[in-house]
Design a protein around this nucleic acid. Structure first.
Lengths: 138, 138
DNA sequence: GGTGTATTCAACCATTCAGTTGAATAGGGA
DNA sequence: TCCCTATTCAACTGAATGGTTGAATACACC
């Protein structure tokens, strides 16, 4: 299901338990045991969850004797935000174009210079996928 | 796996095909068939993908004869952005608190008034989950 | 009314996922 | 060295997921 970074990130965040553990880590670093404490699942299950988060780049683990303190990696959130922002922007542009159309229908003819309703004009880097899907992983 | 809105949203976005379809929809509304065209999977599979996106609230469908035009619902992106922003903020605060600690170690004693390193002080609404996990769906 | 098109429903299959238990590894302290 | 703690690895199980094919539904057009 998840091959690229973005897929792994979203898949990791799709689980409420993992999101909850991130919330805990946002407060401060914690060991696997500390993260497991509040839940009634096995430590092994929590360890797996952490592996998923780590594979997604959302969390990093260091070594302190037997302990493996987990640290939240905030950079990945930027990746997501950028991805999301693209859609918000495009949707916004679409609304503006719609406004233009409505303006024309109203008989108003100003600010209609960027009107390309039926020509997809996204100049983002086209990848292997049929539609665009920006390859944001660096 | 996914019970609440946020879980459904992230789970929906974990699939590259679905993200790609969103990219297409950001350009403009499209029918199921139009969305299915670029891929070599069956139309039924695409229909399922759309159902997942619709259940997550990322897409809405209207009726035009036999056609079911899909429309991107941009509001949900706000929900995600808000969720992400919380973590970025908390991480930021954490860095600031760390700065304070370093300042103290350095012998510098100014602007150390908000120093609560070992007491989790998040006054966000605590839900059923052991750690916080904000219930953002409205 | 009959035909073609667009979409969904239903049943099935292979893979992935979240959880379990039990064993293995690694390090601190008596 | 022996034991206790912390974590991961391995194998298993049940549920969810993404895909398939075939049938059903809904609508426009002739």
């Amino acid at each position: 299901m998840a091959d690229d970074q973005l897929s792994r990130v979203f898949a990791a965040l799709a689980d409420p338990t993992r999101r909850d553990m991130l919330a805990r880590l946002a407060v401060g670093d914690a060991t696997v045991g500390e993260l497991a404490n509040p839940y009634d699942v096995s430590v092994q299950a929590v360890s797996k969850h952490i592996k998923v988060l780590a594979d997604a780049g959302l969390v990093s683990q260091s070594k302190d004797a037997q302990r493996r303190p987990c640290h939240l990696e905030a950079d990945v959130f930027d990746l997501m935000t950028k991805w999301i922002e693209r859609y918000r922007q495009q949707a916004q542009e679409r609304f503006e174009r719609l406004d233009d159309v409505l303006a024309i229908m109203r008989g108003d003819t100003q600010h209609t210079d960027h009107l390309h309703l039926d020509s997809p004009h996204l100049d983002s880097p086209h990848l292997d996928s049929p539609h665009l899907e920006q390859g944001a992983a660096s």
